[in-house]
Design a protein around this nucleic acid. Structure first.
Lengths: 187, 187
DNA sequence: CCCAAAAGCTAATCCCATTAGCCAAATCTG
DNA sequence: CAGATTTGGCTAATGGGATTAGCTTTTGGG
């Protein structure tokens, strides 16, 4: 190999720093190249396109999120697991709002793959509720919807901040848990 | 005035058709101009910038959503109102997934303003639960989070479609309603 | 020490947003 | 109805960002 300066991973690192500091919309090949101290076209030696870079970045973020949530859920089950999962998720968003925006803006297969791990973690967290396979799928979807919706809204500052977010989140956790405990309709 | 051909509203109309047919990412001044049968710079006579067009489009979408949901909620209260609200919301997303993506991609003050009407409708729908002002704010936020999260995920096809979405949504409605009925934690 | 691959660079192209300045049509005034 | 004015559209030009082509240099292996 030649100058071991950059690499796909290193480019993603730079991109992440850029996103953290300047927001998801600042992610541009020109900006990344500049931060990396390299000419823009040089990035193509490590990354196929801006779209691919977005995918790699999102996958990396999704992976970090899954790891953090997986650790938080470890050793807990049912209500406690759900609470830990949701708390960890929201914690990540609060710490890295721009990253979450980036995640939202870059769908695609790479992210999906990384997301499957997170879905596995969610399924495991719900195992104690004794749901059959079908119901478990529905439960995970609802959990995703609630947490993701809240995260998106927080990340883009869509809430008037005159009331505490933490209290809202407590209610959301309560909704999810109570919805999982009480018998679902006609099912 | 001169040739009454275009207008800001007409430009938004064209943009909406474009989004419906080619997706939110296809919204570009060049594409809108082409569809409108006009040169790109001509659009600036009706719209300040692409950013403003995005805002106008989003506001229009938010308005349509609010109108539809407002009509659905009319004459209902409590559980039935929540169910009607959520059903109408999801119905709009199912009919115009690309529009919902566009809405997500263009935050900003114009959308917020249109969104306030929708928030008012949500507050009204929850009135029958007899929540104090603070709890009502939290409840609306949770409702938004759940519905919006689900909508975003549906709009970007984030669910494996091997299970029916409608059943999932029933569970989500159930979660919201049961969470609103059972006493919230420590509050 | 020589070579092939890897990684960088510059130059060139394309697409899109945006600006500047010009022209024609429609409306308004008298 | 004629002229002034406004308005909406146009072409040309600029600038930024992505992407491609083709050249050069570094580097690791033999």
């Amino acid at each position: 190999m030649a100058r071991a300066a950059l690499s796909a991973d290193a480019v993603v690192d730079v991109a992440l720093r850029l996103i953290d500091e300047e927001g998801a919309s600042a992610l541009t090949l020109a900006a990344v190249a500049s931060r990396a101290g390299v000419a823009t076209p040089s990035l193509y030696k490590h990354v196929r396109s801006l779209a691919e870079l977005r995918g790699l970045v999102s996958a990396r973020i999704m992976d970090a999120l899954a790891t953090r949530i997986g650790a938080a859920v470890l050793g807990r089950s049912a209500d406690e697991a759900v609470r830990a999962l949701m708390t960890a998720w929201h914690g990540y968003v609060a710490e890295h709002p721009h990253r979450y925006s980036a995640l939202v803006q870059a769908p695609g297969p790479m992210v999906e793959q990384a997301g499957e791990r997170l879905i596995g973690i969610m399924l495991a967290a719900l195992r104690a509720y004794d749901l059959n396979d079908t119901d478990a799928v529905h439960a995970v979807r609802c959990l995703r919807a609630a947490v993701h919706g809240f995260s998106v809204l927080v990340a883009e500052n869509a809430f008037q901040l005159d009331q505490k977010l933490d209290e809202t989140y407590e209610l959301l956790i309560h909704m999810v848990i109570s919805g999982l405990r009480t018998p679902p309709p006609r099912g």
